[in-house]
Computed example of a mutant assay.
Amino acid sequence: MGKNLIFYNKIGFVTLLKREIHRFMKVSVQTILAPLLSNILYLGIFGGMLQTREVGIEGISYLHFLVPGLTTMGAILSAFQNPAFSIIVQKFQNTIQDLNSYPISDIEKSLAFILGGTFRGLLVGTLTYLATAFFVGYTIEYPLFFFISLSVTSFIFASIGLISGLLLDSFEKLNFVLAIVITPLTYIGGVFFEITKLPGILSKIRYINPIYPLVNLTRYTYIGVYEGNLLLQLLAGSIFLIGLFLTAVYIFKKGYGIKID
């Protein structure tokens, strides 16, 4: 009965969380510096070429429009990769079954992997903001909510990363999801341009693209303006947060990708 409690073993939970954080910090050049440099290059290329481009939001420059999109994109990709690749590595090393013997609850195990990914996503997103601040300034309209938005976005995609890691069995399949599904949805999710300016059916994709409301919420906290219905986007973000976390815990509890039949 105790194993159903959220914190059945706090020491074990913290130990697993620290392991997940230490795992990506050991290779910080690859996990932190590389995505940070990529985002700075995006800012240099798109910002340099399109800095005079008019944005459909009065009083907002393109660079200011771009920064929250880049921070969100960095958080999304990093948060997804951390638990996903951690689980796949353990499958590759044939140590994934060891998770069954950890004296902590399934919620604690899931939460440790997800929070590890959340921390990495928030770290990359925050460092991206700090790096771009040299070009556009440090001003944030709602600083607290900006970091809350990045944290929620990171938590959501860390949950998706955990689900993907459990359900998939190879790096090739995981990279397919990352390259063919998540990355394109990010690009057309409002990172680089206003969704309403996309032609035809592409502008309608925002209604089924889960990344769009998250990018838009972060942009609102950064510059104080937004596209679409903010309340609906807040509702969508809340549903994603709760639904994906519960799904990840359920899959973990069922032992998909962990237990041997």
Rank of each mutant, 00 (worst) to 15 (best):
L36I: 11
N100R: 14
L246M: 13
E227T: 04
G257H: 11
I211A: 02
L198Y: 14
I260D: 11
Y226K: 07
L41H: 04
T183N: 07
S78L: 11
A79N: 08
K18G: 00
L50E: 01
L234V: 06
P103E: 06
A236H: 14
G190C: 07
G125M: 03
L33A: 12
V14N: 00
F145L: 13
L16Y: 05
I21T: 10
L185A: 06
L214Y: 05
V191C: 06
S110T: 11
N4W: 10
G121P: 03
G116D: 03
S154R: 05
N175P: 00
G116K: 04
L168E: 03
I88A: 01
L166I: 01
K10T: 14
Y138P: 00
R19L: 07
N209L: 05
T139A: 11
L241H: 12
I242G: 10
Y226N: 14
G69M: 07
L70E: 02
N39W: 09
V181C: 03
F80S: 02
G2R: 12
Q93M: 14
I60M: 09
Y226P: 02
F145Q: 12
L17F: 10
S151R: 08
I251C: 04
L167R: 11
I211L: 13
T186N: 15
G243N: 11
K18W: 10
H22A: 12
S86H: 08
L123Q: 04
T218M: 10
S101Y: 14
K173R: 11
Y62R: 09
I156H: 03
E172H: 08
G48Y: 00
F13N: 04
T218K: 10
K253D: 10
I87D: 01
G69Y: 03
M49C: 07
S151C: 08
F92S: 13
A34I: 15
M73T: 00
G255L: 13
L232M: 14
I195A: 13
T196H: 14
D261G: 13
T139Y: 14
E58D: 13
Y222P: 02
T186V: 13
G200C: 08
E194W: 11
I239M: 15
I223E: 02
L244R: 12
L63M: 15
T128Y: 03
G44H: 02
P103I: 09
T118N: 02
V249S: 08
E194A: 12
K197E: 08
L174M: 10
L234G: 04
S61F: 05
D106S: 15
M25S: 06
T221P: 08
Q90A: 07
S78T: 14
M25R: 09
R53S: 09
A133G: 08
L246Y: 12
